[in-house]
Amino acid sequence: MSHPAMNWAAIDSDPRFQELHARKTRFLWSMMAFSIIYYFLLPVGAAYFTDLFKIKLWGPINVGLVFALSEFVVAWSIAWFYARKANAEFDAMSEEINRLAFSIGGSK
């Protein structure tokens, strides 16, 4: 499939695209960093803070079990949070750039 030539540099330097790029970069990489750190707290905690993990909270349920279950909740929350943000914000911004693509970078 062949597409008409576009001036990609023009779109790239358009303020609307720059705004999308800045917002996405900030959001995505901070979420990535948070999720990776939170995940590695689990094996580190289990290995080096074993006594803390053994503290019973509710019947036989201890800190370790709650923490492991919280990993699931956190992963789902990040997914939900990202979906909300992307649906409300990123999609609208990229659709606008998509719509204006030819007027911004149509002729090369």
Binding site: I11, D12, F17, I97, N98
Partner: peptide, 9 residues
Amino acid sequence: YVRQNTGIH
């Protein structure tokens, strides 16, 4: 970079 972010083409 433009295409991966916007889905143009």
